[in-house]
């Protein structure tokens, strides 16, 4: 680990101010990803700005839906009664993630910025285009069982590994951001994450110094009837091999609205809108779920060790849809 400066921000202004002259600064919330990667020398920020005292708190019901302060902890949101009852996929995605200790530390804003678990990215002895642009991607011809099959490029096939973002992106969540200049803006989560393309080092549209202040999720019947299903190598405390977040509004056997997203198969949390469109107006049957799942995986590009994800992702989607259809 390298030496770094440390300050505690008492206000958003003070926090964002740190970035004015220092592009290498980093915000510290729960620290569960940042400190880990600093110890591995993957991240070497010049200074850490502790934002834990910023007032981005609260899990509240608004006229439009749900509002979660960015500094809320994963465990508090996951166990919140409103979230559990009205947005079960969000609660499930949080409670199936990490371990209780990590969930008690990690913030919602920080969780959305979770970095990939690609072993090549995490070990500085390897080349990695994401960590060191232009150095190469050993995963493409390497150990890529955990890697992405959607949204990849010939520069990077690293998976977005998180859970919460998959549920949020399915349910049309919107991020509330505040820039270094004090300007607020809203970005649908769908537009927030980037595929690697030729710039795998850029993972989101977040500007340097910009803060996530809150996440809002619109209320909807498909949110109330939503589910997060996670398949992994062990029963708990593991990243997903494949996950699915789905929501269905079924009236009289006919699907009125559908939400479908996949985790750990894409280079970003993967919303499958074509699959949703296929489902709307159709009967909630296994055949239709299968067709939607096939469409969701269309264009998948597997590598040597991760071809199984194509089938597993479809099965996971079908299972999740069956479960919410009841």
């Amino acid at each position: 680990m390298n030496n770094f400066a440390f300050q505690t921000a008492a206000s958003a202004k003070q926090a964002t101010g740190a970035f004015r002259d220092d592009k290498q600064a980093a915000y510290l919330a729960g620290g569960t990803t940042l400190l880990d990667l600093m110890k591995l020398n993957v991240l070497q920020p010049s200074q850490l700005v502790d934002i834990n005292s910023l007032p981005y708190r609260g899990i509240t019901e608004t006229p439009d839906g749900l509002r979660i302060g960015a500094m809320e902890r994963m465990s508090d949101v996951g166990e919140n009664a409103l979230v559990m009852q009205q947005y079960p996929a969000i609660s499930e995605s949080l409670l199936l993630a990490a371990s209780p200790q990590l969930r008690n530390m990690a913030s919602i804003g920080g969780n959305l910025l979770q970095r990939t678990r690609c072993g090549y990215f995490r070990d500085t002895a390897f080349p990695c285009n994401k960590r060191q642009p232009g150095s190469g991607c050993p995963a493409i011809n390497g150990e890529n069982r955990n890697h992405a099959i959607l949204g990849t490029s010939d520069q990077c096939i690293a998976t977005y590994p998180g859970d919460l973002a998959v549920a949020l992106i399915a349910l049309d969540a919107v991020l509330h951001l505040e820039s270094a200049k004090g300007k607020a803006r809203r970005v649908p989560l769908l537009d927030f994450y980037l595929t690697p393309g030729n710039t795998p080092q850029r993972e989101t549209t977040l500007e340097p110094g910009e803060l996530i202040t809150a996440v809002t999720v619109p209320a909807a019947e498909h949110a109330r009837k939503s589910k997060y299903l996670k398949v992994r190598d062990r029963a708990s405390y593991a990243f997903a091999l494949v996950s699915a977040a789905v929501g269905l509004d079924v009236q009289g056997g006919t699907i009125r609205s559908a939400r479908v997203a996949l985790g750990s198969v894409g280079t970003k949390p993967w919303r499958a809108q074509a699959a949703e469109q296929l489902l709307v107006g159709k009967a909630a049957t296994e055949a239709n779920f299968r067709a939607a799942a096939a469409l969701a995986l269309q264009g998948a590009r597997p590598h040597k060790h991760n071809a199984f994800k194509v089938e597993l992702a479809q099965n996971t989607l079908v299972r999740a849809l069956q479960d919410v259809a009841g």
Partner: peptide, 17 residues
């Protein structure tokens, strides 16, 4: 434990991987 076949180096050498 997964050993990269080009680098002869492990890629999941921790208790998360």
């Amino acid at each position: 434990t997964e050993r990269d076949q080009n680098f002869a180096r492990y890629v999941n050498a921790d208790l998360a991987g």
